[in-house]
Design a protein around this nucleic acid. Sequence first.
DNA 1: CGTTGATTTGAATATCCTCAACGTGCGTGG
DNA 2: CCACGCACGTTGAGGATATTCAAATCAACG
Lengths: 246, 246
Amino acid sequence: MKTIPAATVQQFHKPHPCDRCYQSRFCLPTALPREQLGRMREIVHSTMQVEKGECLFRSGAAMDKVYAVHVGSFKSVVHSPDGRHQILGFHVPGELMGLENLVAQRYAIDVVALEESEACEVNIRDLELAARDVSTLQHQLHCLIGNRLARAQQNQFNLGSAHAEERLARFLLDLSQRFKARGLSSWQFTLHMSREEMASYLGLTMETVSRLLSRFHRDGLINLSVRELQITDREGLAALIAPLEP
Amino acid sequence: MKTIPAATVQQFHKPHPCDRCYQSRFCLPTALPREQLGRMREIVHSTMQVEKGECLFRSGAAMDKVYAVHVGSFKSVVHSPDGRHQILGFHVPGELMGLENLVAQRYAIDVVALEESEACEVNIRDLELAARDVSTLQHQLHCLIGNRLARAQQNQFNLGSAHAEERLARFLLDLSQRFKARGLSSWQFTLHMSREEMASYLGLTMETVSRLLSRFHRDGLINLSVRELQITDREGLAALIAPLEP
DNA sequence: CGTTGATTTGAATATCCTCAACGTGCGTGG
DNA sequence: CCACGCACGTTGAGGATATTCAAATCAACG
């Protein structure tokens, strides 16, 4: 992992790291008026560059930073004491990671890069200070947190009330949605996670995920060459998430 | 549902509603220095009294309040468009509800009382304003949010990686833990929710929950008369949450 | 090309769900 | 007081879904 202090970035590259995700809807500085951006830049501690499979951070001890994805994608993994683990979420640019570290927790959560990625590091205390100065930033932060909670609750519904088929369909459509929100293609994208990782996230096994993807393909819903996904029948996929016959 | 404006409460009862949960560890005003309590009281809009089965709030339209449980207990329920529903959590005194309403959301979440209960209502905008004035309040709010996220993630792990037996064991121990944190008995308490509700929360069916409770009883782990629970072998229960043979 | 790791596919099994019957507690009204 | 209905809970049998174990296929890379 390579750390690039914000100062250095500003010195050598014309755009500040924050500018690079300014377009993405959910990034911190988005909601700030232009003239407040300077305040935001002050609190961005540095930019982290991580290789595929590398750990951005490992929760434990005193965790006093949050991270915003700039480039690439991450997964967050929870480990139980007995060695099992589960993926809690995938993070694409503009999303915040480490919010749960605002306070001590039971489980250790690792955040790992799925590909070569970049994230900017923000000190929590600085962020809190800035939020007190700038009400739009405070509100934006609360919005991000609200989104995050809503996402966690959606996951809970998914894992609790949906069968394998529906979980996977929801997952694919959710990804599609998130890419679309960032201005990327919503019907053709790369799954940067392995089958195993998808399975872990969905509370299934690798084999079940694989079988379902094959079935989706047979049914003409998707095209899939290893990790390159095309959604060919969005309606068909959407039909799977509401198993009802009215 | 009966609404008691804070002013009225202060007038007719000696203790302000906030005083009633001042001892509970996670309630908002807890972290405030005594002299700041006044600021907190200003933003408590009113106290809501709800009957068993009654809806405290129903998310939708513009939701601009959060609630703190004073007395009793609540459940939050998510409804999917096709009529299914799942319980996302149970809330005991001192816990905050409605945080996900800091921003618009996809799913409608209802919060319903499990028994005769009381909650105090806080306007989000007032809360944000106060948080900017009082840094301890801001930090406390972040801690509550962090806790909430951690809980959601724990649920996700539970639903995704644990079998029925383990889910139920975790649930019982979690409840025990939360009661203990409030100074109540950790080995003997009332389950205010029905089997159906427990099942919904755990992503199981009523029948499975019932069978497991019977089994736990046969194995001498618990005593259960309808809804009165005694944990007779905490170690035995804890052993179920780490299915490992070293 | 052969090795390694990821993915797909198949067959047998386990877990949990569905359906259905039965039991219990409680309030209502005969 | 007892019968009755009703909601909730328990228990059983059979079946569906997803897992486990195992083998085959595919892709990447030296």
